[in-house]
Every structure is written in C-alpha cells, then in structure tokens.
Design a protein around this nucleic acid. Structure first.
Lengths: 239, 239
DNA sequence: TGTAAATTAGACACTATTGTCTAAAACGTC
DNA sequence: GACGTTTTAGACAATAGTGTCTAATTTACA
C-alpha cells in the first residue's frame, strides 16, 4: 500500500536472522509495513503480534521466523523507517535553491517540499510519535536518527543558508540558528495539525510556508531586498 | 513529591464517584500523581494498576474504589493535568510585558517564564507525550485542552502583541500569526531537547529565548528601534 | 516433477494484567 | 471507647498476549 522504494526495501531485507529469502522478500516487507502501522497506532506495548500478523496477511509464526521476538521486530521497524526518512530528507535538501530567482517564492517552494515529503508524511508522523513514546526506553536506538535526521538537517540547511548569505541574498550571523528558526517558522502553523495526527492540506502547507518565509526574510534579508521579497499579497493569506 | 497547588487538588478531588472523602483526600492526590507518572512513562496500555498502586503507596483495591476502572483513572489524570497546565498558562500570560522598558529583555524574560513554567515543566512534557500517544484514541478528551490550551495561548498572546503594536513598539499585520511565530521561535532551540524528554537547563532556556526574541524583533520591530533592541552580544550565544 | 525451504494453522505452556471479592485492620469522629 | 467508613492484603477467575512446538501445506527453483 505505502510507497516504498525497492532499493530501500531490499537493503533492509538483506539482514541478519530469519529465512534465507530465496529471491523474494515480500513477506518481510509486508511485515515491516504492517508492524509500523500497528506500532504507530498502539505503541510498543499496545501492539500485539497477532494484530500485526493479521494486518500483514501473514501467520504469526512467520513473524517469529523472521524476527526472533517482538522487540527485534520493533527495532527493525524503527531502523527501516529511520533509514527511509533520512534518505527522503537528504534528497529533499538537495533541492534547496542555490541560485534563487525569486527568493521568497523559491524558499517557500522548498519549504512546501520539505514539509510535504519529510515532516508531514507517513514516516514523519510515525517517527514523531514513536520517538515521543519510546525514545526514553530506547535512547541508543534513536540516537542514530537524531544525528542523521534533525541534527543533520539543521547543519546542512545552515550551510545552504550560508551560501546564500555569502552571495548577499541574506544577512545571517549564526547560520545554524537561522536554519533552526527557518524550520521552526515553517512548523509554526502546522503544530496544531500535528497534535491531532491529521495531515495538513496542500493549501495549509503553502500558507504555512509563505508565512514562514515572509517573516524569515524580514528578519534575515538585507534591507535593500525587503521590498522585492514580499509574498504575492492576498492569495496566500492564512485561512 | 511533585508541586501541586492545594486549590487545584481539592477542586479535582471533589468529584463524582468513590469514597466520600471525609476531610482528607491525600489518597486521591497521590493516586493521581503516581498515575500521571506511570502513564507518562509507559503509555496507557503499558501502565499497570499494580505499578501505579505501588508508586502511590496505596493498595490496588483503593484505586478501584476511587476510579471504577483503568480508563476512568486515565481520564481523571488527563483532566487533572490539563486543568493544572491551563491554569499555569493563564497565569503566565498575565505576566506579559504591557509597558516594556527594554523590549528585548522583557520579551525574553517572558519567554523564559513561559517555557520554564508551562512548556518544559512536568505537566507540559506529560501533555505533549500523552496527546501524541493517545490523542487519536480519545479525541474528545483532548479537545477541551486544545481549545483552552494551545488555541487560547495563540489568540491571547496575539491580543497582547496587538497592544504593543498599537503603542508603536511593534509593527505587526497579523497578530495571531505573529503569536504563533513567537512561540515557534522560542521552541526552535528546544525541539531537540524535547525529543529526548530531557529538560533544558536554565542557560539553554535563556539563550533560546534571547535568540528567538532577537529574530522576532528583527522581523517585527519598527526600523527606528532595531538598534536598541539587540541582545547583549556574547553572553547569550548558543552553546 | 522433485526437493528443500518457507509458510501456515493450531495447540500449548507461561506470564501478566484486569477487575472482583472477602475478611481483617486502620482510621476519623463523636 | 464505639461507630461507620476507608483502606488493606490476598486470593481469585477471566482474559489476553508472548513465544514454542508440531505437522501439514505451499512455494521457489532446478
């Protein structure tokens, strides 16, 4: 059901334990997907292996064949989602506008891509919930994600902002701080939506991005560019 | 153990079911506190009544006397924490600087109070986790909190910013948006800390507030005031 | 088609948890 | 000190979940 790149699935499936997967790994994939859904919905202790088995259209025993016990499965799910999420993040960061034509428009579009494909999608929601729920129980597990996810996004985005700053398109002292604030501003209008678990509409994503970029540029654009960096006036207004 | 105002405890304790509480309600309070801790740590399904009973220094039967079943206790805990959290929020908003002497300093101090007493404290962490974990299972339960918590804080803060704007201390178009962005900026440097469940140090709170206010004022302060609204240069630098 | 691997359904022991029940003990108040 | 209430410990049935085992069935591939 859920989109999943073949490359990622196979790299995950080719792992330590369990059956030797002669050619096909569809069972593994559907177990991982089903388990991700159930763990996300119920939390670790609330999720039952039987429920996962039913949702994966697989017998309970097959799950135990592939993953020795519940916790092994949980760890595999986390690693799978983290890997996918970080890959998406990385590919998204590569679309950052380095030669912006219209700074406001280009940054807004980037922000929309980022929220839509990384922060507000299925995996993003899963990780927010799971880190919140089980982060303290498995600190080592999420450490890798933290390093290659949230921490990396700030520093990478900081470096990209630095480029724009050196070109004179922005006036920034602390690049990493500016990156964190950019992300925070983009999320400002989405926080409320996060709290339900609901997905924001495309319209909400666009207005959130536009609002964020407008404020970001008022704070960080050189004065002479302020006039040209305003958003199209009313189309993107909130609500 | 945890601080708790007497007024709130009693208003909560005087409720529908259970023993008639002749004079003392210490059992109810310690059950609620212990349950809050355990639910926060383990989630609803992970928490066991026995664990709560032990942590509350109370027999299991006593819990069933006061709260008919696990879910009743859970709902009571949520309502208790929500009520306390919203009260703290409301009292904190009343300390917003309406006649600011030094705008940067006063807004920073306000932000520190807000994060320290509402967002990063015990109840704030509890609600973030629980809404994330059980929000979809009990949408009606958290609706009240959402209305009187996050939604109210934005609109109230928006109104307070409007006052400052009308006095000429700020230049704001959309007050609610500015309020959401103010809060988002304050949280920008704390997001990472939230993800562990760890509490930020006082130093981190101060630097987060100062960074946020500096950017907020660059975006929203009238031009002629920009010079005077800079933070003390190096003391508050991040890390 | 034959073989080895993977999958399945079902039974199973074991543990943990919920919620009830009872009789004894502790408590507060008069 | 006597009374009624609350609390307690422990036993208890009922349920649900984990993880194992087995024997039968299906699948992949030569």
């Amino acid at each position: 059901m859920k989109s999943r790149t073949i490359a990622t699935s196979q790299s995950i499936a080719r792992k330590d334990t369990g059956p030797k997967l002669r050619g096909q790994c569809s069972k593994r994939v559907s177990i991982l997907d089903a388990a991700a859904n159930v763990f996300c919905r119920e939390g670790f202790s609330g999720a039952s292996i039987d429920e996962i088995a039913i949702e994966a259209c697989v017998s309970r025993q097959t799950i135990y064949n592939h993953y020795r016990e519940k916790e092994t499965l949980f760890v595999a799910v986390i690693e799978d989602v983290m890997e996918r999420a970080n890959a998406a993040l990385f590919s998204m960061l590569s679309t950052f506008p380095d030669k912006p034509d219209n700074l406001h428009q280009d940054l807004s579009d980037f922000a929309v891509r980022l929220t839509k494909n990384c922060l507000c999608n299925h995996d993003g929601k899963f990780l927010r919930r799971l880190v919140q729920m089980e982060g303290e129980r498995y600190p080592h597990l999420f450490e890798g994600w933290r390093q290659h996810g949230p921490c990396k996004i700030s520093s990478t985005l900081g470096a990209l902002l630095a480029k724009l700053s050196h070109k004179g398109a922005l006036r920034i002292d602390d690049f990493d701080l500016a990156a964190r604030q950019f992300l925070a501003l983009v999320n400002a209008d989405l926080q409320m939506t996060y709290l339900f678990g609901g997905k924001p509409s495309d319209e909400e994503l666009h207005s959130a991005a536009s609002n964020a970029v407008a404020t970001f540029l008022r704070a960080y654009a050189p004065l002479e560019q302020q006039a040209s960096s305003q958003p199209a006036p009313l189309l993107m207004a909130v609500r």
